[in-house]
Computed example of a mutant assay.
Amino acid sequence: MKRTLVTGTVATLLAVGLLPTSADASPRAATQACEVNLGSVTAGGDQWTQLMAATTPPTRTYEHIVGRDVYPDGQVRLSATMTADANAAGPEVSGYLVIGDALYKSFYAANFADGAILRSSLNRVGGGWAGFTAVDQSTYASGSFYRTNTYGLRSDGVLFRWTVDTQGVWRNKTSYPGFPAVKSMTLISQTRTYDTFLANTRGGALYTIHIPTAASAGAVVKLIRGSTWQGFEALVAQRCGQYGTLLIGIDKDTKSAYLYAVGHANGTATVIQSRGKLPVSLDDPVYFHWTGPAATPPYGE
């Protein structure tokens, strides 16, 4: 895909650490459309950001390379949400990736001007990830409370959750069987007591998967829509307003994507408004959501 760098929304990029803190960050106007900070890993191992505004039809307000030649060409299969924090030269990026059969914790610092890597590390967490179809991380902090949970969906339909302590040690593995039909999933809620994902199935349904943080509690699944959602191989969501969610559904077969404004999740009563097709061709192999250390947690359910 040909990349064109355009001027973007400074306040949005500061919120996820993709601009240095010295940038002129005037407050976002109340009338400005919400945006999804869509991340991707290219076939050449670069990481990009694109801001997609929920206008009707949607518009791309910004595109920029975050890290150039970060990963081996064509080897990244999956990416969790990536966290970007700003330093003087540019962003410091961290998050989990699946490369081949292994899960890695990635970190790098890059030059904002051109994405050149200043320093980086790629630490192997463990193997056995060749059969996984999704990975994501949920970090929630409020006052002195802090938790980090990592999720992985295996192709046989078992969803796993691990608790990651402040030293990076994975503990308390929990499994939730029963999701073999899930095609893709994205995090839409984080609270002290639960995480919620929005997931589409190969049969076309759209569901919420509500996972309490209590180890003994099971996942709660609610139907949102019963059909028409089977065409998306990737879902990426971002909070919009107090309770809403912006959702991008990516059809990799046609290299196209559509943006939806989703109300607070309430089963089949959930309001979903289509904002239309994105005005870009999306041909990168891996897509994910950017966030930052000061970002407001999503609250879509």
Results as ranks from 00 to 15, higher is better:
47 Q>R: 07
88 A>Y: 14
267 G>I: 11
20 P>H: 00
222 K>V: 04
219 A>F: 03
45 G>W: 02
8 G>A: 03
168 G>K: 14
199 A>N: 02
293 P>K: 06
2 K>G: 15
125 V>R: 13
199 A>Q: 01
296 T>Y: 04
113 A>L: 11
189 S>A: 10
130 A>T: 06
64 H>F: 11
94 S>L: 10
90 G>M: 00
91 P>S: 06
32 Q>F: 10
204 G>M: 03
162 W>T: 11
96 Y>R: 07
153 L>K: 02
49 T>L: 13
251 D>H: 08
117 I>A: 01
98 V>K: 09
96 Y>M: 08
281 S>T: 13
283 D>P: 06
223 L>G: 01
88 A>E: 15
58 P>M: 07
29 A>C: 08
163 T>R: 15
229 W>G: 07
15 A>G: 14
272 I>H: 04
229 W>V: 06
82 M>K: 09
81 T>F: 07
179 F>P: 00
79 S>N: 02
1 M>S: 14
224 I>Q: 08
6 V>T: 11
234 A>C: 08
256 S>I: 03
35 E>A: 11
137 Q>V: 15
112 F>L: 09
115 G>S: 07
88 A>N: 14
163 T>I: 13
245 T>L: 06
104 Y>I: 05
163 T>L: 15
233 E>V: 01
188 I>D: 00
298 P>W: 12
92 E>Q: 14
119 R>A: 07
188 I>R: 04
204 G>E: 01
269 A>M: 07
290 W>K: 06
113 A>I: 09
32 Q>N: 10
110 A>E: 00
269 A>E: 04
106 S>I: 01
25 A>M: 08
83 T>P: 00
71 Y>Q: 08
267 G>S: 09
15 A>H: 11
85 D>Q: 14
143 G>F: 14
102 A>D: 12
8 G>K: 06
260 Y>F: 15
239 R>W: 06
135 V>M: 04
35 E>W: 03
186 T>S: 14
43 A>C: 07
279 P>Q: 09
138 S>T: 10
219 A>K: 01
